[in-house]
Design a protein around this nucleic acid. Sequence first.
DNA 1: AAATTGCGCAACCGCATCATT
DNA 2: GAATGATGCGGTTGCGCAATT
Length: 288
Amino acid sequence: MGRAPCCDKANVKRGPWSPEEDMVLKSYLERYGTGGNWIALPQKAGLKRCGKSCRLRWLNYLRPDIKHGGFTEEEDSVICTLYNKIGSRWSVIASQLPGRTDNDVKNYWNTKLKKKMMAAQAISLSTTTTTTNINLITHSPSPSPPPPLVIPTIKTESYTCDDFFTPFNNDTTSAALAPTDPSFMFGHNTSFPMAGLPGPPGLNGSVHQYSASPHDDPSTASCSYVNWSANGPGGDDAFFADFGLESPCEFFNGCYGCQEKIGQSAPNQATLASMLVSSDTKPQITYS
DNA sequence: AAATTGCGCAACCGCATCATT
DNA sequence: GAATGATGCGGTTGCGCAATT
């Protein structure tokens, strides 16, 4: 038995969205949200569109945090690095680029970056065998034996204060426990410039800002790194594992994307500091 | 100036996965 | 565990526009 179509294709509009349709969809979503059902949304909003089409339009174009325009060199590097590691998992790659959508990244790769990287590969093969900063494309046909793969190990994630507080601000049940003013940090505006603390072995990076929710009782505080980056193998799991933590979510409940952890206990500032200090390596993480 | 070509990007399609019953 | 429905995702298409012939 075949699947039923998600909508009546004969009675839905297709093709480019008009500004009026955009306005209707945007204002509806800003007012009511998805209601947990994209399929029913267009009818409720008064749009003659397929629910999937509405979802795509919102995610790829109408969302307020979408970044349009050219990609930076840094974004190029992230895309190439991740493509070499995980292939065409565009949603994963896009998740590392704030404001970028998987469709954007996919289009950019297919139209520009792939050619750019192939050209770089051709140059590197014709000039030297000791490549240093060029990402080689492993998915394209290559002569045997294959050239050495050079994968930069830069791992960067950036969360803004607004991102950090998004799960709180969108969740009325936890809003009472969380601030709406990002400047209101743990310990009443105490940020976390803890210079001289040891960092995880083998990683170089920086935590630009540390913040936590402003509970007076630190034993129930939740906290999160904001705008941290780590250069080295592993990425975020390794980053935190080397602090002796299983993962960011285990302790840093309340961090962006970890809403399900809200409500668990978290280490207070002193405990966290002692965990960091107890590492026997010299400082490799700088806090600024 | 008209026709053709190439490019960029929005949108669609169909399959995979997840959630619910 | 099976059936069903909703969502997420990657591949692909097709339109509009600019560059080229």
